[in-house]
Write a protein that binds this DNA or RNA. Structure first.
Lengths: 337, 337
DNA sequence: ACCTAAATTGGTAACGTGTGCATATATAAG
DNA sequence: CTTATATATGCACACGTTACCAATTTAGGT
């Protein structure tokens, strides 16, 4: 690579001290218009860019955030997009660390954060924890600003931003009740994951709200994938009891599985059984029947999370805050009256 | 944030000069076992991590790459995953810049690259160009190592890694011919995009290979989205001529549109018209009929691209290379005999 | 013109590492 | 016990920038 032009190159050409150039760059008011103009001209001519590494060294601030995510897939994509768009707007860099799940527990987040200096860390994490894991405590001890995404929402334990799974599921159940369904099955997403747990909890709470008794036999133990959901749906339909008239699935892929299972069993959707998914997969709209689902404000998470991160950075002693975002019900054919 | 422990803290505690500590860190052989052990012990005790910013300043090497992408969506996700996994393996950082398309032409890639020092740049870009755009020439002039993803493959103009659209489409057409189809329609992805152009070119070439005459009337001008593809498919089916017996779509979403259009027109898939998509969307498997498609080695692009980038960094004068990766045909119900 | 205060600029140290060169210590040879 | 040679370590500077303090210039008031 070519040698970059530095502040000193500019200074030499302008016949001033390099600190003067620095002042021009940092818009220090103690600088005469004449020299300011001269320096700016030369900076433009030489296409000068400040060396952010050097600046980072002296200011111990890199103007970059880190995002730690277990995976990069279609669910994480909109979150990343939101974050990265926000970073661009604020002129921050974004370091992306995909851990491929192995970092979840065993290794400390500090490993990456301490090595790649960043001003703050966003942690997207899907494994369900009741307590704050030890490695996070370490983060707190080191006073590294961090915000959790989609975890510990409403816990009051750490700074966090995420969707409100409870109210989102409530939307779904309310809708099913509104169209007259009372015997609602559920296909779960697995109790290892935050979303799996919360959506199931939310489901039970929503039933309670409508005075519908929770029937254990109507619970399918899925894991967010297709195959298990298909089998569970089929199993529920074969039980020797009154059939469900609706099913809520913790994500769209499982909802598609449910639809296929129901149809393979010779039942009609939505007449016999209404189906509601979760996530708003693009393709869901084009299925027959088009899938009713919950649309999540995934892209908004990034903006809110970085807002919060900046607040923490500017006031490290502030009390923790968590922000929960509301989702939207998208009604389509799979659950109309 | 807390003050980090530095090389000097270690040095003080060990009663040696900081340069000795530096040598230990860098495994300089000119260092006695005794002091080495002592220093290493203290480093472990204090949980020392080198300040990569400072190191980057003196070595003008940051051990980080940049990825510039117009968007973060489900298509880019696996590419990002591949890249980020590879970076993690090699202990490189990855700076993600999502341009939201505005950087494509107007602003120079240099803007970001020069500002955030990185050792190399990966550029994912979807807009079709015959010539190398001016901003890239600038990159070359500045001698910044970069590799294109999914663009300029086979052009011999720049270093690039991507899928071979031509051979991928050939797979699809070969398959359709194999199951006895001769009158093959196509729904294009739009001539603004590299993939759109190349897949259409590949389609025509593949027809030629099988001595099938290209019929302009069987071309639908899609844009990778659902609605236009649906309309175009419908239009083609309404033309006053012999109907196609197959349709190749430049991506899966449009293939789903085609399926719905064909079905809405009262025709059977695959009996009347076989459908082949492109991309292998997860949901495609669960449609009825399950979608035949082309599975792309998206995740492999990252590894190959970074290999190439490292080669360029280590030998800046080497001649350009481009690597094209092969895709795989996934046959499902939408195109069986 | 002269003094004083204000505005502008220069000089230098610092951020945390790496590195070449000089120096000190240990080892080997005589 | 010297002297020569390897081996080990310290010293000082460099990387490009910011930040502080001192020095200089300019402006304002008499």
């Amino acid at each position: 690579m070519k040698k970059r032009t530095t502040i000193k190159d500019i200074a030499r050409k302008a016949g001033v001290n390099h600190s003067t150039v620095s002042r021009v760059i940092n818009e220090n008011p103690a600088i005469s218009d004449k020299t300011k103009k001269k320096v700016l001209k030369i900076m433009a001519d030489l296409d000068y860019r400040p060396n952010l590494i050097a600046r980072g060294l002296v200011k111990s601030k890199t103007n970059a955030f880190a995002l730690i995510t277990p995976d990069v897939n279609l669910h994480v994509a909109p979150i990343i997009k939101g974050i990265s768009d926000t970073c661009r707007r604020l002129n921050y860099g974004l370091m992306l660390f995909s851990t491929d799940y192995w970092l979840e527990e065993s290794r400390s987040y500090l490993e990456v954060v301490k090595n790649w200096l960043v001003d703050g860390v966003l942690i997207y994490n899907v494994i369900y924890h009741k307590e704050i894991p030890a490695n996070i405590k370490e983060l707190q001890k080191e006073e590294i600003p961090f915000v959790f995404l989609n975890k510990f929402i409403g816990s009051g334990m750490v700074n966090a931003v995420g969707i409100n799974n409870y109210s989102a599921v409530e939307l779904a159940v309310d809708h099913l009740v509104n169209i007259g369904r009372k015997r609602i099955a559920v296909i779960n997403g697995g109790m290892m994951s935050v979303d799996g747990v919360e959506r199931f909890e939310g489901f039970k709470k929503a039933l309670e709200k409508h005075d519908i008794e929770f029937d254990k036999r109507l619970v399918g133990e899925g894991n967010f994938f297709y195959n298990e959901a298909y089998e569970e749906m089929k199993r529920i339909l074969c039980l020797n009891m009154e059939k469900p008239d609706a099913v809520f699935c913790a994500n769209d892929l499982m909802a598609i599985a449910a639809i296929n299972a129901i149809r393979d069993r010779g039942l009609k959707i939505p007449e016999d059984i209404a189906v509601v998914g979760f996530d708003d997969l693009e393709a869901g709209k084009y299925f027959t029947p088009a899938l009713t689902t919950i649309r999540l404000p995934q892209q908004d998470i990034g903006g809110k999370a970085i807002d919060l991160l900046l607040k923490i950075i500017n006031d490290p002693k502030r009390s923790v805050e968590d922000i929960s975002l509301e989702s939207k019900l998208i009604v389509r054919e799979s659950s109309i009256k």
